[in-house]
């Protein structure tokens, strides 16, 4: 796979399609699952591009062979003075799960984070009910940094939020 930039219309169409799968959204995000139109999402994306905030980096993920768009990775909340940021990743079509695309995208994103942005570390949050993501992050070199007890409520019960992080020196050891 490779990381790409896409026009708002393309990203919006993919975003809206992915969001029809409620499980995907609930594995991905802590806000309530909702359905939005392509028009609305496109407007948000365009507004986001106008701002051009350097604290956010979002890339689309395309498969090398077929050039098919399969998801995104993103970096947010970059604190340049501290060398710290938060990241997230989503593959919208469940046919693409479990095939190593996520691991591949994480590897490329970490290299970008540590050798282009020159950050010191990166954090992420993962739901207790998403063990597949947890394993994938561990495989990529992230370490568990704590559990926020009962942070989320879904399907009538409370779930912990797991916080993970990787330091530049740990990433260098992986190579």
């Amino acid at each position: 796979m490779r990381l790409t930039a896409e026009d708002p219309a393309v990203t919006a169409e993919q975003f809206v399609r992915s969001n029809r799968d409620s499980e995907y959204v609930r594995l991905l995000d802590n806000t309530e699952a909702r359905l939005w139109s392509v028009k609305k999402v496109k407007e948000w994306l365009e507004k986001g591009f106008e701002k051009e905030t350097p604290a956010t980096f979002t890339f689309s993920i395309r498969i090398l062979e077929s050039d098919r768009l399969i998801g995104f990775v993103g970096l947010g909340g970059v604190q340049w003075s501290q060398g710290d940021a938060w990241m997230g990743i989503g593959l919208g079509d469940r046919q693409d799960w479990g095939k190593g695309y996520g691991t591949d995208a994480l590897r490329v994103l970490l290299r970008y984070i540590f050798t282009e942005l020159n950050l010191h570390r990166v954090s992420l949050g993962v739901f207790e009910y998403n063990p597949r993501a947890l394993r994938s992050y561990e495989k990529a070199g992230f370490r568990m940094e704590g559990r926020q007890r009962k942070l989320y409520e879904r399907e009538g019960r409370r779930w912990d939020g797991i916080v993970m992080g990787i330091l530049r020196e740990e990433w260098e050891q992986l190579a």
Binding site: L28, D29, G76, W86, M87, G90, L106, L124, R132, A133
Partner: peptide, 10 residues
Amino acid sequence: QPATGKQSES
């Protein structure tokens, strides 16, 4: 407060 940590993969 950390910016919202987006979750997941799959």
